[in-house]
Design a binder for these strands. Structure first.
Lengths: 245, 245
DNA sequence: TCAAGAAAATGACCGTCAGTCAAAAATCCA
DNA sequence: TGGATTTTTGACTGACGGTCATTTTCTTGA
């Protein structure tokens, strides 16, 4: 058996190489999508052979899922930062809404990867460990919003009925995902005369929050001021596209 | 030059063969998804050669897009039927909401095809004609809902501000698509304890309609009775899964 | 320092499949 | 009927994901 000190270094090296592979894979995904590159090209880029790639990932899909999970964790990070905003529960919910826009702006390529994950035979080609890791990352996002909504109900900011906290969470996630999907659709944007898709996402989130009766309602509070605070306190570098000029 | 009568028959035969191909392709898509069948298998199924398939469709993606457009037109048919419901504008909107559920129930496999269309390099492999046909089918769905919302605003059922009819349409489409996407996500369903995804779709649609201030609001009207009427008058065979037992 | 054994890296090779095209078959027309 | 035209065919090509026998590198103990 190998000395513990040696095997630890090896493990570290292995982890570093995996990161290297993921970095390059992510770049290729952003630049070319899924089809327009192959494992040989990735191998050349990272300066290892194809066989070595397959020691880290069981398939191309498995690799892409790993990239997706890493980016999804970045989203969860943003959500958790947003949730730390000091204000009413609805303001905290709004901060998460802004976080989803910051994320979309920082990772515009991720949208297509996410759509890919929902389609096709992606999941049956991925390894169980990666699937679980992805589920965990998704759960982080879910939980962050869910906790705020539970607080909102407990504090009386949101009426108890007729929706459970779980369903309110799902509604907000649904409108956010749906708005992003529709916002990417070129034709619909033309029909609806939408030039700033992220603005539509936020308007739609407001709509659902009001529909849920989440107080203070849109017309009861100056949310433009809230947005100012959220941006300056949490996403200072995102002011350019989140706040009206 | 060939006689007109002959070339007409040929055109008809060609069209019939295209339908045959589309029927079988659709079956394969429903049974196996996109990857797990190939053009050779389809050729055997329709009893023509692979080369003949490529006289109708420029690529596998082109063929799948044609299938998708055909199904999307079926959805537009349902929407137009729903829009003919006699009632308030919000009731008509609700009828379209139910139509989207009827569609999801009749074509459960279509969801994955639609997601595929949003991802990857699908569009660059499809022919311009098929892309345009698909855009037309999408526009039919959009327009049906849009017209009702324009009426709603004109009649004062929906406040003029702060959302345009276009944006209200987009919001309802977004919540519908988003709810379907989330409803398909197994993990989220477990988290949220959702056993009937279609019910969530409808609840979320209600949420947005209320958020839009579309009168009569949910608590101002007995929509269970409306649902009864919509189902009996427009979707009589869908009572089993649309109405509470 | 070295040799033997263990572990890791490699890339030639395999099977599959979308898409092509020259040859064959079918159809048309004078 | 036979030659010209159109349509159909399926063998072939190139590309790619994935494998595994061979080679290279590293570890260990004397």
């Amino acid at each position: 058996m190998a000395p513990a000190v040696t095997s630890l270094r090896k493990e570290r090296d292995l982890k570093a190489r995996e990161e290297l592979i993921l970095d390059h894979a992510r770049r290729l995904l952003a630049e070319k999508g899924f089809q327009a590159w192959n494992m040989e090209q990735l191998a050349v880029a990272v300066e290892y052979s194809k066989g070595t790639l397959y020691q880290h990932f069981s398939s191309k899909e498995d690799l892409v899922l790993a990239v997706a999970s890493r980016i999804l964790n970045l989203r969860a990070d943003l959500f958790e930062q947003a949730a730390s905003f000091k204000g009413s529960t609805r303001e905290q919910g709004r901060a998460i809404g802004l976080a989803s826009c910051v994320f979309a702006h920082r990772h515009p390529d991720f949208f297509h990867i996410e759509m890919m994950l929902k389609s096709a035979s992606f999941w049956e080609k991925a390894s169980p460990e990666r699937k679980e890791a992805h589920a965990r990352a998704g759960a982080r996002c879910w939980r962050t919003l869910y906790n705020i909504i539970v607080s909102a109900i407990a504090l009386g900011d949101m009426p108890r009925l007729p929706w459970s906290a779980e369903h309110a969470t799902m509604a907000l996630i649904s409108i956010t995902i749906g708005s992003h999907v529709v916002g990417m659709e070129h034709n619909l944007r033309v029909f609806a005369g939408i030039d700033n898709p992220l603005l539509s996402v936020r308007l739609n989130q407001d709509l659902v929050c009001d529909g849920l009766g989440w107080k203070p309602l849109l017309h009861e509070h100056n949310y433009a001021a809230t947005d100012q605070r959220i941006v300056s306190e949490i996403f200072p570098d995102a002011a350019a596209f989140l706040l009206p000029t």
